[in-house]
Design a protein around this nucleic acid. Structure first.
Lengths: 236, 236, 236, 236
DNA sequence: AATGAATGAGACTTCATTCAT
DNA sequence: TATGAATGAAGTCTCATTCAT
């Protein structure tokens, strides 16, 4: 006689299902009213998609792209195993969406958002605030970016997205360097593009260093140190 | 580099697979006579192990750690698919061995091998040649190191092995910076360790950037740019 | 060199395997309509689970626990080879489920289900009907129990389940013996527990004997023989 | 550069090798002089074979036939992985040899070794001492026999060897029963063969029960209980 | 006589993917 | 919209087995 109460042994299947009430405010920009009822299909779809992506980012930050399974993403987002596939189709496409989602979060990070004058001042300010913004309470997005950059070496779909965010970042730095040269603040023999690549590389490596070993790395000190180094090396 | 010869034509070949024609001189110091007969157990074992590791490195350079399968490693080395497991047991242990193997290949990369005077000159020379050596004919070792460093973020066994190379490399840079300070070439307020960590990271990140996107990055320009930046920012 | 794009496992996936023709009525109480369509998820799941367990019991009866493979269980039940793992996770857990399934089928075999008076009469009746019920058309369940009991010696998960069914059986026999003693039908110097263990052992060995060599063993004769022996040896 | 000190990850390979000095007096009947030197090839071969078999029995007692690997047998006996295959060829043949070896150890267990008079007294004495001898300091041989008997249900090569012990044991019991009948101690309507089969089976099943679940079974009580039951049920 | 290198079959297990509900 | 049942490919790992030393 079959046992009525048997459950599949897979422990993951025991994970919470659905949780329509208030799944989890995964996304910092969570909507004010996450209640299921009283919302249009489009709204629900959008929210589900956002939650799935946010869950995916957290998982990527933990275990990398290969370590992320569709089942896990669905359940971590408070939905069923099947939903990620339902929305994104192939895993490949989910990975692409995750990569864009991660990149978007950093897209404007080097944009000049202050009232600093263009050129050297903007550059130094952007560099400083890039490092400042890396250390919020939740390191997951930063960690996810680092991992996505790393795994772009072997995963073409990531390479594409990461190449995009890299080029935008390099472009912003390059523009500031050019302005600095035009304004006579920065040496004329500096190659704006190459210098921008090096600055971005230094920023990323500093953050990666902190992501790996936050205990022993003091971002504020490194920030000050780098800003003054940069000033010294670029000054006309 | 993709392999040319996939499998022996005759699938039911009972004879040992090791082709007498010296399948591939994986090891630069390949033995003169790789024929099967006339060698001791220990010799055969050592050679097989070396070949397996060399094959694994090539595959890691192509597809990353997760993309490397035991079957592929065995066959790429000219043996059976079972041999890697037979030697290394778990894939985990093969990965550890591969990581050490990769790390060993770069152990002396930042050692001062020139006749430059110690201190600033050595430092700048080492930095320049690190970037120069990244792009030889066979980029596989460099690629493999970059990938191993990247995947160390999510794979603890790699993290351990990579930590070794990193510490050795940081140590060498740190020593040069200290000498530069002692000789009065480098500012006294530079923290040798922190600066060494940042320099190494920047070198690596930049190379990774180039690996992913060689179109937009010219290593020679970067090298000159970085050397002069460093010189100015560190100079006493 | 960028990786060749990974391709979907099988682009032209063959149609689902579940034959609509009701592959095999594995379960004696097979459902009237095993067709795939028109059933809820829960129903399909339950039926699949029942079929898998029934198939597993048959295979265990044939080849023992070690000889049972997940692939075989899946296909013998009319499903894919992947389903057992999908439901039960590890083979270990399937084995545990099979052991419970087998034990459950025999759990009540020694319960007094007749209108015989308690004590000696019930005991003799239970013993007789235990042997009678062992010889239906399909010896697989009995054979599976014997094998599970045997392999419990080396497989802890079986030992647990078998220990359970054994203790229940011993408990029932012991209760009847106690009643017989209280009613003055059975000698006062009989140790109810030890005697119950011996009776169960004799029953099982008799059945095992028949399972192994049904041609030369006449269960009806052995039954009569043992019932009268028992009566003689226990009578007050 | 390949690491010279690498060992295969398989932990079993780290087990002691060879140990020519005085490996282990596995066999109680070990030769007086186990020294390697000064012995003929035949002697060394015999000893190696005996050691291998003794090691195999210990392993079977622990993990069963399927759980026994050739490598483990060789190393547990103090030799190399390859020796069992070298001597016995296929695993199948080693199993057969092990089965015979086990059976031989129990060949005389039911022989009347006392001065009891033939017939009923011998029968009861043999039964009692069979149970007594089951629980010596080293239960491995008993365990191994039980396991071999159990796995004979699914492993033909075992069935054959076990059939030998069984027939000898049944024969001895049958002879005692016949003598009892001739001497007028045992009822004439007892079938000597069937009764002997049932007695032997009950002895074995009971011991197996005790092996699995020693907590709930007291062999001494069982022995007394069974002896007096037998006496009453067989008495003329 | 004895060792151990190497092979290859076959098991378990995970998971992306498809499809019915 | 969302769930989850079911498939099947691909990978890891274990070992019996063969064969050179």
């Amino acid at each position: 006689m079959p046992r009525a109460d048997r459950k599949p042994a897979n422990p993951k299947r025991a994970a919470p299902r659905r949780a329509a009430a208030a799944p989890r405010p995964d996304d910092p920009r969570a909507p004010a009213d996450p209640a299921t009822s009283g919302r249009t299909h489009a709204e629900r779809r959008d929210e589900a998609e956002r939650r799935l992506l946010a869950a995916a980012v957290r998982i990527v930050a933990d275990r990398g792209i290969e370590g992320m399974t569709l089942t896990e993403v669905g359940e971590a987002a408070g939905y069923s195993r099947g939903l990620p596939a339902h929305y994104f189709g192939r895993k490949h496409d989910l990975v692409a969406a995750v990569a864009s989602y991660i990149a978007d979060g950093f897209a404007t990070r080097l944009a000049r958002t202050s009232d600093r004058p263009p050129g050297m001042a903007s550059l130094l300010y952007s560099v400083a605030s890039y490092l400042d913004r890396a250390a919020p309470d939740d390191a997951a997005p930063t960690r996810a970016l680092m991992i996505a950059l790393a795994e772009a070496l072997t995963e073409p779909v990531l390479a594409e997205a990461m190449s995009g965010v890299t080029q935008r970042s390099v472009g912003r730095l390059r523009a500031m360097i050019r302005q600095g040269i035009e304004r006579g603040e920065i040496r004329r023999d500096v190659d704006p593009h190459a210098q921008a690549v090096i600055i971005l590389g230094t920023l990323r490596t500093t953050i990666a260093h902190w992501v790996i070993d936050p205990e022993h790395v003091d971002l504020a000190t490194l920030r000050d140190c780098y800003v003054s180094s940069l000033q010294r090396s670029l000054a006309a």
